[in-house]
Design a binder for these strands. Structure first.
Lengths: 361, 361
DNA sequence: CTGTTAGCGCTTTCAG
DNA sequence: CTGAAAGCGCTAACAG
């Protein structure tokens, strides 16, 4: 290319190739190679800090690259290397504080290792979850992080991932699978503690507001609830369960339900703070005193807890850590043996946070 | 899992070829071409529904592709076509209801047009915003959607985008630029209405809790606040401004500030609901009656408004629509002339929502 | 330590 | 309407 002057593409026909933002040609490793009088291969190696390149040439390469604003073409790179350095994330919904914190943790972990995140929400629908899984698969994500929709009953739509051995990490909303890692808290224990706390405060007529206990988190919380009752010698009846979607509106509806009962409960354990806050608000409006008449405990430690009156007792859920750990483990699997070794499940610590909504002593 | 026992990958040679998940070869257009006895070029055209291909061959191609589970390789495709069908999104933070709704709107618009979203947060720091911009640029996003960090003072870090004529849409937190579209609400007018409402309720000693008015949204809201005061013949003094970060904690601090004053305000306009809710809670704790002693209006119409007591009056902010419109316009620019024509700014309607926190009549 | 040589899978002129 | 051929920019054997 020595003698070639710079008019190579000068006579570019003025076609309106609508797709091209690049008016000026992009700089490639060939340009670098030419200017430095070395081969493109060496440039490629120099750029990725390959051990078999002399410090000196490496430096020359990297400096020139920096100077003339070279940027590597991910597509060419991925096309060869078959790695995208992108992690897919599927969450039931984005508009929840808990999910935001999880994603923040994932992002920090990801960028720290040179990975990007591509996020999609299932809106709590198994069908959309399947679509997302497919889309992310088609974008060739290196790995997947997922929290299942409430109505997802099996892992069929992730079969393509298992088949190609693309590592999958479930967090919070999980379904056991031998090839997957799951990161969660001990929901049963947390719910047990919440319920136990209510009982310790003197509550005897307890209800539990939750989502359909098909999903692990709700099943486990229900189990914890029942266990605490059992230990305290309180019988459990089905009508102690108020099942909905745990959205704000469900909290209001639950309050109506509770108020309509002849034997009103004196303790409420809600599997989600926002729903608990709404329920609390509705209850208060009709003159119920919290916690004297009814004590309430929520779940998640959402900021809403400290803004309602009285402040909401809850279970602190380490969202950021969960996201961080899930992503870190996924990336480790990617760099290592492509599986999670013998670890199938990581349990994070959660703890009861006592505030006014449940303090009766 | 019928006959197969679980040893599928048991004899996997223990090489750590970290990069390759694909044990079986991927299906390519060459495979399709071969099976159909046509050229790869025709397959390529058939797959993208090119007009110059007979209906019949198109059908054959698409059916076979579907049947044997062909998936196109985005990298090869992008490498040629220079289009990624990916939009970059930069937001100050993810953990806000408003932002979640905006993103939901964007996602719907994006997938509807065959685009993907890649989201990153600046954590309200101009420096991180610059990094994100660079990263997204390097991932070759086709366009960018951004809501600026509170301390971003210029658009230098987006220069690369302007230079390459990659379209940029600002939403909510904007900074004017002739090559960019901006999508926002009339913050001045909204703030004017909120303040006006407070005045109509009989408030005369008003304060405004907000963020540094360097960013358009806060500057405009402040302008609206002042305008309403001026119209009502109420003088404005600097100490009517309480400036912070509008986070929950700033609400509590603002409450302390307010309570410490000798001449207490009787009306508070807060530029963010969560902060308003926190402030309201703190105020109530010390016995201030809302709205009798102090009326409060927030901003955004966050769900928290209906969970605090009394419910918070606020400005309804059409987040979903904003996201949808911003993304749709960006995509149109991508498919069209690569600029936004004569439109530089789209204004969405917002309106006052009156609830108990401000009703004194 | 460096260069040569092939492609990765797809799109796109240019010719039929 | 279809095919042949030429890359997009990069990486990875393989050979010095």
């Amino acid at each position: 290319m020595a003698a070639t002057d710079c008019t190579i593409f000068a006579e570019n026909p003025p076609t309106r190739r609508s797709h091209t933002h690049t008016m000026e040609k992009e700089i490639t490793i060939y340009d670098l190679a030419e200017k430095l009088n070395i081969s493109p291969a060496t440039v490629s190696r120099g750029l990725q800090d390959h051990p078999a390149i002399s410090k000196k040439t490496k430096k020359r390469i990297q400096e020139l690259a920096e100077q003339i604003g070279y940027r590597s073409n991910h597509f060419a790179r991925n096309l060869r290397s078959k790695q995208t350095h992108t992690l897919g994330v599927i969450v039931p919904r984005l508009d929840s504080y808990f999910v935001s914190t999880v994603i923040a943790g994932m992002e920090d972990a990801a960028v720290g290792h040179g990975y990007k995140l591509i996020i999609s929400q299932s809106s709590e629908q198994a069908a959309k979850e399947a679509t997302s899984a497919k889309t992310l698969y088609d974008s060739r994500v290196d790995g997947l992080l997922v929290s299942l929709a409430v109505d997802t009953e099996n892992l069929e739509h992730f079969y393509i991932y298992f088949q190609k051995k693309i590592p999958l990490v479930f967090f919070d909303r999980v379904l056991a699978h031998e090839q997957c890692l799951e990161v969660l808290i001990d929901n049963r224990k947390a719910a047990y503690e919440a319920t136990r706390h209510l009982i310790d405060q003197g509550c005897r007529r307890l209800v539990h507001i939750t989502a359909p206990p098909k999903r692990n988190v709700y099943a486990d919380r229900l189990a914890g609830f029942k266990q605490a009752l059992a230990e305290a010698g309180i019988p459990f009846f089905e009508d102690q369960l108020i099942i909905g979607n745990l959205r704000q509106n469900d909290g209001h509806k639950a309050a109506q339900n509770i108020l309509s009962r002849t034997s009103r409960p004196d303790g409420i354990f809600v599997a989600n703070d926002y729903c608990a806050a709404a329920c609390l608000a509705s209850l208060k409006k009709t003159g119920v005193r919290i916690p004297q008449d009814m004590a309430i405990v929520g779940f998640n430690n959402d900021p809403v807890c400290t803004v309602v009156e009285p402040n909401l007792s809850t279970i602190n859920y380490p969202g950021y850590e969960m996201g961080h750990i899930a992503a870190t483990n996924l990336i480790q699997a990617l760099n290592g043996s492509m599986d999670f070794g013998t670890t199938n499940s990581i349990l994070l610590r959660s703890e009861l946070v006592v505030r006014e909504s449940s303090k009766r002593n």
